[in-house]
Design a protein around this nucleic acid. Structure first.
Length: 156
DNA sequence: GCCAACGTTGGC
DNA sequence: GCCAACGTTGGC
């Protein structure tokens, strides 16, 4: 089992939105490195849900992968902002997974608080200028984030 | 293959 | 809203 972190802008789609809808296709990823991570995700993998471009950037909750990578349909919709005219339907370029809300953090674990966790020193998340929107986290990083948020990793 | 220009991300 | 950092594009 692998652990992941997904970034989302709460003004567009925040953790409360995921709780409201239950399951959500994680579409619109248009970065090769992030896409490759999406393709490595397995059903059941836990994900930290991160709020970016927010007044208080940080981890808002835990999600879980409910469907492994499949073609992102937005790439074939000319009316959609994520349309990619050069993607071959026989060999779709972009993938998405489906995720489900698992548990909200009691309060957002701020980026500042994440940076203070020694396990996170090597993560792209805490590196200045990092724009990777889907990234792997170690089990240690995942556990440390849950503990810092006041949750028991075994209670998920 | 290089690299400047551009558009986007994301913390502040 | 600002701007540094980044990934992508396209001229050469």
């Amino acid at each position: 089992m692998s652990h992941w972190l997904l970034k989302s802008e709460p003004d567009v789609f925040g953790y409360p939105d995921l709780e409201r809808v239950g399951r959500e296709p994680w579409n619109g990823v248009r970065n090769y490195q992030a896409r490759n991570f999406l393709r490595q995700m397995a059903v059941g993998d836990p994900c930290l849900f991160y709020h970016s471009r927010s007044k208080t950037p940080g981890i808002a909750g835990v999600a879980r992968v409910t469907r492994a990578a499949y073609p992102d349909d937005l790439q074939f919709d000319p009316a959609n902002a994520y349309f990619d005219a050069t993607s071959d339907p026989q060999q779709p370029r972009w993938s998405m997974v489906e995720v489900q809300a698992v548990r909200a953090f009691p309060e957002v674990l701020t980026l500042e608080a994440v940076r203070a966790l020694p396990q996170w020193g090597t993560s792209p998340l805490t590196r200045k200028g990092s724009r990777l929107s889907v990234l792997p986290v170690t089990a240690e990083q995942f556990g440390a984030a849950l503990t810092a948020a006041g949750l028991d990793a075994n209670s998920l």
